[in-house]
Write a protein that binds this DNA or RNA. Sequence first.
DNA 1: CAATAGATCATCT
DNA 2: GATGATCTATTGC
Length: 185
Amino acid sequence: MGEEFYSRDAALVARECLGKILAHGKTAGRIVETEAYLGTTDLAAHASRGITERTKVLFGPPGRAYVYFIYGMHECLNFVSEPEGRAGCVLIRALQPLSGIETMFRRRPKARRLEDLTSGPAKLTQALAITRKLNGSSLIDGPITVRRPMHESPIEIDITPRIGITHCADWPLRFVIAGSLFASR
DNA sequence: CAATAGATCATCT
DNA sequence: GATGATCTATTGC
């Protein structure tokens, strides 16, 4: 996807990411669950506290990765959205594994089934080997890339409140491919 | 199956 | 010094 894909409202980008292919190296998956974070007006968003060392990439140009570290052990991947200066982003919450599945199982020894591999924001970063070293990297030039699937089939989308937050907990900003076995929780 | 505890540290107050 | 956009194992029904 090009810069114009990301340079729009985060909620719209989050919804349109569903069904796209996320790839890093030999591993790739279909995006089945996302959440939008809106920037300074959204108290659940990291960007709501303004520009800091951690959040500066969110205020930068769209189409970059925002990878943050949480709970002392997990990393999560976001797509920076909206034009430069606005801090919307899209949290990638779950994938359907497509390629490099052997590699994913090696990276996630605790996963027993295919559905355990990438069905959560920190699971998928482990499976695809996405770390904070990739914070600020381009989603347009790689190494992390997003593209349209070869056969884009119509999908039904469920919209629900976001998961695991305490502020703005009722805002309907979570997007899931209806019935996907690979969504979180 | 649902609920809960523990792990563990960067970031911000 | 408290907190958190989570995961896993364990306990309890």
